[in-house]
Design a protein around this nucleic acid. Structure first.
Lengths: 233, 233
DNA sequence: GTCGGTGCGAGAATAACATTCTCGGATATC
DNA sequence: GATATCCGAGAATGTTATTCTCGCACCGAC
């Protein structure tokens, strides 16, 4: 169900005060066994919190849950929550990071179905667009939903969370470059960052219907724009 | 100092229950004089709240002010605040709308200095980029700062607030199209929307330094990207 | 088996805000 | 001067996040 690797959370459990190299070996081992067990338990608890939050988000179709709800759903205690997370924001961050990682995986898999480098990029862009748009379509956590919140309070961490996706797009761009399909004047990583941002944010806004005659921007348009820009050749 | 036209706020003062066409004329006039005065006062009050909020934002370099602070700074009362605004979000919206309007004006003025349509667009993009990035540079209210918050809670209103900028870019794009400088396959308004979004959001993220070797994306890169895309011609 | 310690559930206490309500006092209207 | 309206001051309420305090259950040591 959930990624087993625990993200930027965990730590703050095993803080042995004097397990430096001068302690007797048996003591070291004992302490280690103890801390290892503790760490395991901690991971399971963190896991349960994350799953609970996930479940709530899925059910309420929004990221506006309270810590209380998470605690109740996970059948643990508030005390425990704050023992494992620095605050709500860390929980959100963890979920966000997880969602990004999964999305990156999913997109990578989808893109690998194409042989032409530009087709790979195209598939990636379309899928990212779909995954980024809010609304009922989002089976996956509504993963762009809290990005804005976090972007304000913890921009650095958000950037870290973006890393897997950025890496993926950088890979695809590099392949395109190798095939001579990239404009000479642009670096793959740069193109990747710009494309990613554009697609994600445009997708996000595309949910709200322009009340009037104007239709929201589509995945196809976003792709065309990123690929070709707007200026005449 | 501030735009005189009051935005989407005001109203909710003059709600005459029976000023329809069947009331006697003298009464109508009396009521009108009264409501007009009331409206005037209301506008001044709204004005003071907006100015106060602006001042606080400028001073604290963040949009995280409390309603209390605004009330105190404006030397009015909480009661009055809630009589004129539906809540804090309306105040934010008003500020945001105002900031967008001013930015649009500023950009339009700057762009008009160029004669070539693409140069106009280029100037517009660069200025928008500068205005959108947070940090100490922002002499103007940090106007993208609350956009994310509002985008979540009131997407429709945010879209409305974007209108002046969108219109401006649409104008510039249309001029470019008329001069045959736009790709044939793209509609001016679409190009405008895409460019605007891309520039604003990329600028926003560009503030956080990629901790490592990577430099943040520059205004110039954003322009190149929007104008030419990433694919080889 | 009992003792001291530790992990943790339950939930009370605190704090920061937004939002609402209530009370007078000023000012204007008749 | 009586009365209605507006409005400042600030108390009251409600919602969360976050911290604190208790007490119990488990575990290894003696």
């Amino acid at each position: 169900m959930r990624c087993s690797k625990v993200l930027h959370v965990e730590q703050k459990i095993d803080a042995p005060v004097s397990t430096t190299s001068q302690a007797p070996a048996w003591k070291q081992r004992a302490v280690e066994r103890s801390t290892k067990a503790a760490k395991l338990r901690a991971e399971q608890r963190v896991e349960r919190f994350l799953d609970a939050a996930q479940a709530i988000i899925m059910e309420k179709r929004t990221t506006d849950f309270t810590v209380q709800e998470v605690v109740e759903q996970s059948r643990q205690s508030l005390r425990s929550f704050y023992q494992h997370f620095d605050g709500k924001h860390e929980l959100l961050l963890a979920l966000f990071e997880d969602a990004m990682q999964r999305s990156a995986d999913q997109i990578r898999a989808a893109a690998s179905g194409q042989s032409d480098p530009l087709d790979r990029l195209k598939v990636a862009v379309h899928l990212l667009f779909e995954l980024s748009r809010p609304g009922p379509t989002a089976q996956r956590p509504l993963f762009t939903e809290f990005a804005p919140q976090l972007l304000l309070s913890h921009p650095t961490e958000v950037k870290i969370a973006h890393a897997p996706l950025l890496t993926l797009f950088a890979e695809l761009m590099t392949q395109a470059e190798a095939a001579g399909r990239l404009r000479a004047s642009i670096k793959p990583r740069r193109a990747a960052a710009l494309t990613m941002q554009t697609v994600m944010f445009v997708a996000q806004s595309s949910s709200v219907a322009d009340d009037e005659h104007t239709h929201p921007i589509t995945s196809e348009e976003a792709w065309d724009f990123c690929a070709s820009g707007f200026a005449a050749p």
